[in-house]
Nucleic acid binder design. Structure first.
Lengths: 150, 150
DNA sequence: ATAAAAGTTAAAGTGAACTTTAAGTCAAGT
DNA sequence: ACTTGACTTAAAGTTCACTTTAACTTTTAT
């Protein structure tokens, strides 16, 4: 089976211009063309699925491109590609950890407002603190990307 | 205790210019000034912690600003603020679900490369598919933000 | 045969979240 | 008193990931 750019865009939940942009950036290797028109085939979906995963877990376009280039080199780059995947797995694990922490934070806020609404005023909870003490700013987990030397 | 912008920046893992930018955007309400110089006090850290949570869970600056404005209105906005927090809790829950899905995907890739490296060639795994079949593109979870009518 | 719909490109534009620059003020140490 | 370093502002610049535009070609439907 073969698919038009519009069909693939709809399947992936992106716009056609986004797919053309990805193609331009070298993120759609070996894409078939008929009279200059892009034709997606079943084999392409295998990669689109990986692309979707990397993209939605914050891997920059440039790094995805690097991965594509490695893949083009064949078996010689297996180890490098493996390392890149391991790195990304770690990114994902760290993210999940972080989001779980923020879930706790927001659940405290949820409790805070429930209590305040019941009481009719924020005064009732104003001096409360989350279980992990509020003032311990150094306990706020910091994203790698945020850390700065300056 | 009071803290300089640099001290706070270091504690939060951001640059001083980022904090000034947040201030400019109205994200640091009631910030004390001495001779025009920003002075952070303990009470500010309570808010900085919430700010940190909202910011790192993808809430746009503009929406955080709305939250700040609601808070300024006092008890009258309790219900609205509660709803905003509930919405954000959902954002977080959805994100965790999504990232857990991508963890499975990447773990398949991890297995894929481990197998290929052992065999010395990708040929050995080329025709394998993850447990959830590769070609079922419609099973790829799509972020709200990605969905388009076009 | 023809009109409309969908495809193409290169290039310019957008929006979010900062970051940098330039010109200046304030505070601390020698 | 003076230099150094941290602070201030407004405004311009940057980066990323698209999105839009304009001019054009190809495909599809009537």
């Amino acid at each position: 089976m073969s698919y038009s750019i519009k069909e693939v865009a709809d399947m992936m939940g992106v716009s056609t211009s986004t797919l053309r942009y990805y193609d331009q950036e070298g993120l759609l290797p070996d894409l078939k063309r008929v009279n200059g028109i892009r034709v997606f085939e079943d084999k392409d979906f295998k990669w689109l699925r990986v692309l979707n995963c990397l993209k939605n877990t914050n891997m920059p376009i440039k790094k995805i491109k690097e991965y594509v280039e490695l893949a083009k080199q064949g078996d010689a780059s297996l180890e490098e590609r493996y390392q890149l995947i391991l790195e990304q797995k770690n990114v994902i694990l760290e993210q999940i950890k972080e989001w779980k922490y923020y879930l706790k934070e927001i659940e405290y806020k949820e409790w805070y407002y429930e209590t305040a609404i019941k009481a009719g005023t924020e005064e009732a909870v104003k001096d409360c603190t989350p279980e992990t003490p509020t003032l311990a700013v150094d306990r706020i987990p910091q994203k790698e990307k945020n850390r700065k030397k300056e």
